[in-house]
Amino acid sequence: MLPLASVTPPFWSTRYGIAAAVAVDDPVTRSLQLYGEWAEHETILLSGLIEEGHTVLEFGGDFAAHALWMSHVVGPKGEVHIAEPRRIRFQQACANVAINGLGNVFTHPVWLGRDKSSAALDTMTPIDGASANEKIRIVTIDSLRLDALHLIKVNQPHALANMLAGASETLRTYRPLLYARLSGLDTAQAEVDAIKALGYRVWSHVPYLFNIDNHAGVEANIFPGMVLQNVIAAPADSRFEFAERLEL
């Protein structure tokens, strides 16, 4: 990790608000620092789905980079819930929520799983570094007892299948849209199957990390050819149709 003192200035101006500067040891922070945005192609797609008054749940805080725009999209009558299990990242996300005065964002220092329990972080997801054996708290989405839910956005890898298993009641009640980053070659098929088993249709979404129209107007591409392998899923009986996307 780079020393914090080497990062100047203390805040970054991003597309949807300001973000506290942190060490740039991560694609998210590198993108926020250089481009003033992170995975903007995801927000372009999701901006066509979220409305004012909606409730959104995001698993994996990504420094609240997307929570900033979701907060504006759902407006004062909507809610954005962020679940971030890692202690330092949770605090950094909270800082960004606080300095932007986002009253409709709720933060949860938890891992969303199949059952209520606790575990070391590296038993849940492959991870290196100091936080690998950090103890995390696991809860289910059902236990959050949300009053409404329109979209679940999953940024955290190796979490989707178990998270869905702990959300059966919520999914049955609210039938939210799902937007998830797949975990990799070994688990992608099982994750897609888990979504389909809930009566959802699934489409592929492969956004490039580099956005040529980025907020900072930087032309250099520090993510050449890099894409995220995501899926968007909607209940089969809903009116969602993504004709231009590949249905899985």
Partner: peptide
């Protein structure tokens, strides 16, 4: 035309 599903219907 820029929205999807229920959002477009609204």
């Amino acid at each position: 035309s820029w929205m999807r599903g229920d959002a477009a219907a609204s």
